[in-house]
Design a protein around this nucleic acid. Structure first.
Lengths: 159, 159
DNA sequence: CATAGGGCCTGTAGCTGCTACAGGGTCAAG
DNA sequence: CTTGACCCTGTAGCAGCTACAGGCCCTATG
C-alpha cells in the first residue's frame, strides 16, 4: 500500500541524518510541511521532503538559527529571491560568527593569564580565585576602553 | 529596622550588576545561600553575599557554567582547594574555549566561501542556496578527514 | 488618615532547539 | 497468535535566565 517513493519517518530520518523526534518537531514549528498520512495515520514523505530537510540540516550545521532558516526557506519557496538577498543573509551570519570568535579570543586570553598566575601551591591562596572575586569586569584591553565584556550567554548562544 | 550593612535585593542587584530575578533564581538552584529575612519577609543580604554574587557573575562572564561555578564555590567554601585544582578547572575551561574558537573558524571559512561564490545576480540560481541544498556535510578540509562537522548546537552551547 | 507609588514576595510560563519519555496503535514475520 | 519493530500524540526536561500575574509592604504626600 506504500505509494511510489513514499518514505516513512524512520527512513527519512536515516536518509537525512535528522532524528525522528526532531523531524516531528520541525513539523510542529512549521519549518517542515505536514506530509500526507497513510490510512493508519503514518506520515508519508517524498523526495522533496528529503531535499528540504537536508537543507535545514545543513543550514543548522552552519549555525543558522531556525528563524534564519525560515527566512531562507521563504525566499526559496517564493522562487523570488535574488542571489544578493541570500548573500546578505549569509554575510550577516558570517559577521556574527566573527564577532563570536573575537569574543571567545578575549575570553581565551583572560583565562590563559589567570592560569599563568597560578603557582600550583597548596595554600588556599590562588590568583584565579582572587581574580574571580574581583568585582570589576575582567581586564580586556590594557589600553583603551571597550564595549562591555560579553557575557557567556551572549557568546555561546544564538540570538 | 534595617540591620547594619543589610542590603535589600534591589540594592544587591545594583551593586552586583545581577538582575533581581536572576538573584532569586540563583538562590533557588542553590548557587547563592538563602539570606535572612526581615520581619515582613524581605530578603536581607550582607557583604559576603555581595562578594559571592560578584564571584558568580564574573565566572559567568568568563563562560563558566553554573555547574562549574558550583564546583569552584565548593572548593572555596571548604577552604580546602589547592591552587592546582583551581588551575586545572581553569585550563579545562580554556581548552573548551579554544575548541569553540576552532569550530567557529571552520564555520567562518565555509560561510565566506559560500558568500564569495555568490554573484548577486537576479536569477534564482544562487551558489549559497545550492550549497545549502547539498546533502553532504560541508567541505571542511579539502584534504584529510576530520571529526564530524560540529553542529551549531555543539558550537554555540555549553555542555 | 487615605492613597499613590515603588519595592518586594511567590509561583508559573516563556525563550531555543531539541531529546526523552509514557501510553498507546499498527504491521509484518514466525 | 504473539512478538517486536515501528509509528502515533502529548508532555516534561535540559541551560540560564526573563517576564509576567497577583498580591503584600512601606513611605511620602495631600
Amino acid at each position: 500500500m506504500k505509494q511510489k517513493n513514499g518514505l516513512s519517518i524512520g527512513e527519512l530520518s536515516k536518509q537525512s541524518g535528522v532524528n525522528i523526534e526532531t523531524i516531528r518537531y520541525y513539523e510542529k514549528i512549521r519549518v517542515m510541511p505536514a506530509p500526507d498520512r497513510s490510512a493508519s495515520g503514518y506520515r508519508v514523505y517524498d523526495a522533496d521532503h528529503l531535499k528540504r530537510l537536508s537543507f535545514v540540516r545543513r543550514s543548522r550545521q552552519l549555525g543558522f538559527s531556525l528563524d534564519e532558516i525560515r527566512g531562507l526557506l521563504r525566499l526559496v519557496d517564493g522562487h523570488a529571491y535574488t542571489c544578493a538577498q541570500v548573500r546578505e543573509l549569509t554575510l550577516d551570519h558570517l559577521a556574527e560568527i566573527q564577532r563570536k570568535i573575537a569574543d571567545l579570543k578575549r575570553l581565551e586570553r583572560v583565562m590563559a593569564e589567570m592560569a599563568a598566575q597560578c603557582s600550583g601551591d597548596r595554600v588556599p591562596e590562588c590568583a584565579v580565585i582572587d581574580a574571580l572575586f574581583d568585582t570589576r569586569p575582567p581586564a580586556v584591553e590594557p589600553s583603551g576602553r571597550q564595549p562591555p565584556m560579553p557575557t557567556a550567554t551572549s557568546v555561546m548562544r544564538r540570538r
